[in-house]
Design a protein around this nucleic acid. Structure first.
Lengths: 333, 333
DNA sequence: ATGATAATTTAAATCGATTTAAATATTAAT
DNA sequence: ATTAATATTTAAATCGATTTAAATTATCAT
């Protein structure tokens, strides 16, 4: 590995001059600057990132904490974050969290200053037991931005959110407007989406039945299994609101393969509007969550904080959601 | 930020002893060891990763170069690589490449020694112009492992491959066996899959028509557009072999929405067997590429190399592929 | 020429942890 | 009690780049 020292020697200057020259410092003479640069190029010199990081206190790495990278909703976020970060000279450490403990490990990693900032997207599990640690991380170590993760009011951590309660509400309202009364929910307990769903049922005086409330349904597989269960039930719902598009797709595949027509006998509505939902068959009715826009905003906020602009100001940004009506919901016959 | 020095002072030992103690070195007395550890814990000390990296020449970071993270085939790889890496104390820098230039940037990053090793999955574009640079990287800087990326024979870079030519062959053969004669291909030019397809047609003396050879078809969107085009054609193929499952899904959605029945009028076969292909409707006939197994093997090989075991031995591992017959192909009527 | 001023270069300190050789303390042996 | 052997601790060098204060060189006016 070629060191700065080597370049300096070949160029007959001190390491100091070499460093200054390569960083385009105006102190050093134009001619020597060019010469050093030329020699560095010839020698194929690339500064040691580890040494640089130690001295400059910057690793040019950003931590992205994300559950389920294999869910398009999140992989699209990852891609956007990476793209914007890269344009600004930063790289991404992909921190996939499948559990609270995973997350804790990453918080520790971040405290070791291997990253210049971090984005936490959503959260795993139910109660947010790591929140205090993340706050401490943000207070004492590195800038942090949240994407779609609950914060107590007035928190000092920047956040970018979508209105998930509204997402569930407009989906539920859409189903109500289509004449449905037996509307099930498949998703996560004590979460915005379930709240939105329940509120709408209340509003329209639909007495919601516990047997239509399916908890812990979060993936393709969960949806698929649930579909089989529902197919075998006697008193089926006529519509299902799903926690996300993956669940919706799992449900549809399962129901259709059990001979139940979607949306003929059962309307299904997703949430997220992942790219696939448009290409699914039948194309999925869903609620658009502008995940890519959110990702862009989040990384922009983070970069601002890292560059120390508006250090003191905390921003909480909320993105709007909208119904995308496609082919998996229809009027109750 | 609390430094080793701070811990040492509080524990009334030198930084040397403190460091040794925290790293469980048997030189230091058990009692002091415990005391130092205890104090470090109380002070919430976490070593500075940057300083540690400089001294130990290890960042504990692995670079994962991957195209299309939003394609499940690759996000599943990313997840598996991350999981195994993390178990071994390594983290992943996610390097999403959308172009040759992106890749070049990452090669430079790696040469700066910000990572201890790298995995390159597939490649972007057609000709592999970065190959020489990657070889140089592997020769002089860090261990490298390839996943499904072409290497010249006898190369010193470890590789994990699936037999993509065979994948296309068995898919094509499957379609031939179903009685199809007008079999189209939608994918990438000069690539294993296209080769496999052409070989089979030759073998069965099916004269393949250039108008059934669709190039540069790689994504949902590409497949969708192509579907529209085919739908409007007069002399349609009766079967299409797609570069991957995404293309297949784009095709199906497009064809079905144009009123063409799949597989009734047109059989479609994918390649990859992404998780979704099972949940698509109709469930997709495809060829299983064991991407997760491949990812596991790749990261295991890389870790071995990093730990300097069998440094000299180069391994080229090939995984087998197999047809998964589902609902999108049927006998030509 | 001479001193003042500006331009350029460099020595040396620094970042924070690790590691080795040397120093010191402890124990054992006679 | 003295020496030898062993256990424990520490001073100091090191990793490779950056940066500041000091040193050196060049330029200019008189």
């Amino acid at each position: 590995m070629i060191r700065l020292k080597d370049v300096a020697e070949k160029a007959n200057v001190s390491p100091a001059t070499a460093s200054l020259a390569l960083n385009d410092n105006e102190l050093v003479n134009d001619k020597t600057k060019e010469r050093v640069k030329q020699i560095a190029k010839e020698m194929n010199y690339i500064p040691d990132a580890r040494a640089k990081a130690l001295k400059t206190k910057e690793t040019k790495i950003i931590g992205l904490v994300i559950p389920e990278i294999d869910n398009p909703f999140f992989s699209e976020i990852a891609k956007e974050v990476k793209t914007v970060a890269k344009k600004n000279g930063y790289n991404i450490i992909y921190c996939g969290v499948e559990s609270k403990e995973d997350e804790l490990d990453y918080i520790t990693l971040f405290r070791g200053m291997q990253v210049d900032g971090a984005i936490f997207a959503s959260s795993v599990g139910d109660s947010d037991s790591n929140l205090d640690l993340i706050k401490e991380l943000a207070d004492n170590f590195i800038p942090v931005v949240f994407i779609d993760r609950l914060l107590d009011a007035g928190s000092k951590i920047d956040s970018v959110n979508s209105d998930l309660e509204k997402a569930a509400s407009i989906a539920a309202e859409h189903l109500v407007n289509l004449g449905h009364k037996k509307i099930a929910f498949a998703g996560k307990e004590k979460e915005f989406r379930m709240t939105g769903y329940i509120e709408v049922l209340k509003k329209y005086n639909i007495n919601y039945d516990n047997k239509y409330l399916f908890k812990n349904i979060l993936s393709f597989e969960d949806g698929y299994k649930l579909g089989k269960k529902i197919a075998s039930q006697k008193d089926r719902p006529t519509a299902i609101l799903s926690h996300n598009d993956e669940v919706a797709i799992g449900l549809i595949q399962s129901l259709v393969s059990s001979g139940i027509s979607v949306p003929g006998e059962l309307s299904i509505c997703g949430i997220d509007n992942i790219r696939l939902s448009h290409f699914y068959n039948p194309a999925l009715t869903t609620v658009d969550i502008p995940n890519i826009k959110m990702a862009r905003k989040a990384i922009q906020l983070l970069l601002k904080k890292i560059k120390n602009e508006n250090k003191s100001k905390t921003e909480h940004i909320q993105f709007d959601v909208s119904l995308i009506e496609r082919e998996t919901t229809q009027k109750l016959l």
